[in-house]
Simulated scan of single mutants.
Amino acid sequence: MLVDSHCHLDYLERDGQDLDAVVERARDAGVETLVTISTKLSGFPQVLAIAERYDNVYCTVGVHPHEAEAEPDVTSEQLVELAQHEKVIGIGETGLDYFYEHSPRELQQRSFLAHIEAARQTQLPLIVHTRDADDDTVSMLQAEYQKGAFPGVIHCFSSTQELAEKSVEIGFMISLSGIVTFKKAEEIRDTVRALPVESLIVETDSPYLAPIPHRGKKNEPAFVAHTANCVAELKGMDPENFARASSENFYRLFGKARATL
């Protein structure tokens, strides 16, 4: 059985998708657990309501770097309090995005630090979004880790092998999306080949980044199976064995989800 460690079911619902059907298709594809991700505190109640609706759906709490200017006052105390709910199993997504820069870098960094502190206090995984910001992402994670350990994952990995390796060094996992199946993603596939299986999990980031053979269509959790099969091939593993390994990695990282099984 597989896990979609990062999807946006609230976006799918916003776009008119029947979530009952989406969750059922995921089950039919062997995807047993879904994590729907918070991108802003103002939208968190809807994200939590979706997680409460399904026994196999969990959620996170956080503010995406794109939203750091719109929601600049997020504090670690707020995040810690909201994370007490049994369905909240992670902090984020958070991080740095210097590609779009929808929010000023200073505000992104301030928000990132608040999320890191919340992850440190709760020991729930930090879900990190990073794009064109490798140096600052690594330096901030390393500096903060020295102040006290916290678990985490680099979500939707699409960066350099150096970022992946330095993240793994502090115990982070690397989450792979449909990007790994894209024709022009050979550098990412090379990085995946070099990483230990114990550090890999999979996601869709749906409704975005549908993997081949669904590229160009609206992504959904069921499609994580295609990403997992691609990664299994890269690692020279039987698909069932990789599915088992990646799911075990997920539950090791997201221990709060395991506790409710």
Rank of each mutant, 00 (worst) to 15 (best):
H66M: 00
Y11R: 13
G62K: 00
C7T: 12
E71C: 00
V88T: 05
G90F: 02
G95Q: 13
A21K: 14
A51C: 07
L48K: 13
S76G: 07
L34T: 02
F99D: 14
A49Q: 14
S103T: 05
H66C: 04
V80I: 15
A21S: 12
L12M: 09
V88A: 10
R27D: 06
I91T: 02
I91C: 02
E32C: 10
L82M: 14
A51L: 06
V31Y: 00
P45H: 11
A68W: 02
C7I: 02
F99H: 15
E69R: 13
G62M: 03
T75R: 08
A29P: 10
G90K: 03
E77M: 04
H66P: 03
L96T: 10
L48E: 08
F99W: 15
I50E: 08
G90A: 15
P104N: 08
G62R: 04
C7Q: 05
P72I: 00
Q46M: 11
R27G: 00
R14G: 00
V22R: 02
G90P: 06
S42R: 14
V35N: 03
A70K: 13
A83N: 08
V57G: 11
Q17L: 14
D15W: 15
Q84W: 07
A51E: 05
Y11Q: 13
V35T: 09
L96E: 06
A29K: 13
E24R: 14
L96D: 09
P104R: 13
D10R: 10
C59S: 05
T60D: 07
P45I: 12
Q84C: 11
C7H: 04
H8Y: 03
S38H: 05
V23D: 02
D20W: 13
D18E: 10
V31E: 03
L48P: 11
G62I: 06
A83P: 09
E86M: 08
G62D: 01
G16I: 12
A51S: 11
H64G: 07
G43E: 15
Y100M: 12
N56Q: 13
H66E: 04
F99C: 10
V31L: 02
L82K: 11
H8E: 03
Q46W: 10
E77P: 02
E93F: 09
K87S: 02
R53D: 09
I37P: 01
L19V: 11
F44C: 08
P45M: 07
A29L: 12
A21N: 09
E71V: 01
V31M: 01
E24W: 08
F44Y: 14
E77V: 10
H64W: 06
Y98P: 07
G62L: 03
D55V: 09
R53T: 12
Q78M: 14
T60P: 12
Y98V: 04
L34R: 08
D28E: 15
L96G: 09
E67A: 10
T94P: 11
A83F: 10
A70F: 07
V23E: 07
